[in-house]
């Protein structure tokens, strides 16, 4: 079920596009319902989005599986998206990702035992002058060090 609050948010996006082009809002609709659902999508939600935007279910499914930012499987409460592309790599991202995995006792792609965190290696997030960097929620964390990672992890709830 899409909540009324989510419908309100989706409607703001629908209004940006010409009449009859509400499917342009599908990406944001999926982002909104994913957030409300604890960070991931399921088939029921995708069907709801398809119904709400009057789109074929398969079109929603295609979008949900094409773009990196949709999680079609459950994730941790906080998803740490760590860049491992070249500029970050040249500044030590590999070592920091290993540190993170060890500290949390998770491999990239997995959820921590307490369900609080999952770690994902991602491609360039375009904050290369601040590499190594990662993203948690809406926020970028740049110029990371082991100490900074400790601080960030301590702050996660």
């Amino acid at each position: 079920m899409i909540s009324n609050q989510a419908k309100k948010e989706i409607d703001i996006w629908v209004a940006k596009y010409p009449e009859g082009r509400q499917s342009s809002a599908v990406m944001q609709a999926l982002t909104i319902v994913q957030k409300e659902n604890g960070g991931s999508l399921n088939n029921e939600l995708k069907q709801d989005v398809a119904d709400y935007l009057e789109m074929p279910t398969i079109s929603v499914q295609e979008v949900a599986t094409f773009y990196e930012n949709y999680n079609n499987k459950p994730v941790g409460k906080n998803v740490i998206r760590f860049c491992h592309n070249i500029s970050c790599m040249l500044n030590g991202s590999d070592e920091l990702i290993s540190y993170l995995e060890e500290k949390l006792d998770v491999k990239t792609g997995e959820i921590s035992k307490d369900g609080l965190v999952s770690v994902k290696k991602v491609e360039c997030l375009c904050a290369c002058v601040g590499g190594p960097m990662c993203q948690i929620g809406d926020q970028y964390y740049e110029n990371l060090t082991k100490k900074r990672i400790d601080e960030i992890l301590d702050g996660l709830k």
Binding site: K16, R21, S23, S24, A25, V26, M27, Q28, L30, T31, L53, M55, S59, E62, V63, F66, Y67, E68, N69, Y70, V122, E123, C124
Partner: peptide
């Protein structure tokens, strides 16, 4: 003027993929 948000696909930087994405499709 309106802003639009992507969802993580490098290919959408290619202008026609971007248009597809803006129309709510795979890029």
């Amino acid at each position: 003027l309106y802003s639009n948000l992507g969802a993580g696909a490098y290919i959408c930087g290619e202008e026609t993929a971007l248009l597809e994405s803006l129309e709510g499709k795979k890029g």
